[in-house]
């Protein structure tokens, strides 16, 4: 498209960059009111084109590059291993490191293996997690810790890491077993019991 500039003698140098309309293109006489409104309309059209093209291009480029550059955001745990890892990470963060004893109880086996706990002074932690694929879960779960006595705790499910205020003092090596019981028979949960001799941070 050939364009003959139509610049009045009064225009400043800065205005040279502004788009102008030729008399032949707009069909108007330069310097008249119609010519000025034609200029305004053309500027608006250009502005719309610039904005639309800019937004589209920037969005597409940004999304494409971001997807390629960064990994997808982490998905909620979908299987027991992922759930256990996520729960263990949460417990590690609370303790400032891995716990000394970690006893899992799953939906499939509601009673843990017997675990030998050396004599000592322990902090007891409990945590319940639910698989992201589980549509229904019982809101609460009863956790029984059996050693020389039975201790029954009610905890929410899912829960954050929960720490029992009273520390457990074992004067000799003991065998401990953890059992989880729900009033509603739904699955997809995992309970972790933690015994750790460190002081709370």
């Amino acid at each position: 498209m050939g364009h003959d500039r139509c610049v009045s003698e009064n225009e400043t140098p800065q205005r040279e960059s502004e788009p102008v309309v030729t008399a032949g293109e707009a069909g108007v006489v330069p310097g008249t009111g119609e010519a000025r409104s034609a200029v305004v309309r053309r500027r608006w059209r250009l502005l719309v084109v610039v904005v639309v093209a800019g937004v589209l291009s920037a969005s597409v480029t940004f999304l494409a590059v971001r997807h390629r550059t960064f990994p997808d955001p982490p998905a909620p745990p979908g299987n027991v291993d992922e759930l256990r890892d996520a729960m263990t990470d949460a417990i590690d963060r609370d303790l400032g490191g891995p716990p000394e004893m970690l006893i899992p109880v799953t939906t499939e086996s509601t009673e843990s293996a017997m675990t030998v706990i050396p004599a000592g002074d322990y902090r007891l932690g409990l945590m319940c997690g639910v698989l992201a694929t589980q549509r229904e879960s019982a809101p609460e779960i009863t956790v029984r810790m059996q050693s020389d006595v039975y201790r029954d705790f009610l905890i929410p499910c899912p829960s954050t890491p929960l720490w029992i205020e009273e520390r457990l003092v074992f004067t000799e090596d003991l065998v401990v077993s953890i059992t989880a019981m729900q009033d509603v028979a739904v699955g997809g949960w995992l309970v972790l019991a933690v015994l750790d001799s460190r002081e709370a941070g």
Binding site: F70, P71, P73, P74, A75, P76, P77, D85, A86, M87, D89, A90, L126, M127, C128, G129, T142, D148, V149, Y150, R151, D152, F153, L154, I155, P156, P158, S159, T160, L162, I164
Partner: peptide, 21 residues
């Protein structure tokens, strides 16, 4: 960018129901 495990939802209370010999 979020990295690491997704945050787990959960409540934060615990109740000792009983302690029995």
């Amino acid at each position: 960018v979020p990295v690491g495990p997704a945050p787990l939802p959960g409540e934060s209370w615990v109740e000792l129901l009983s302690m029995a010999d």
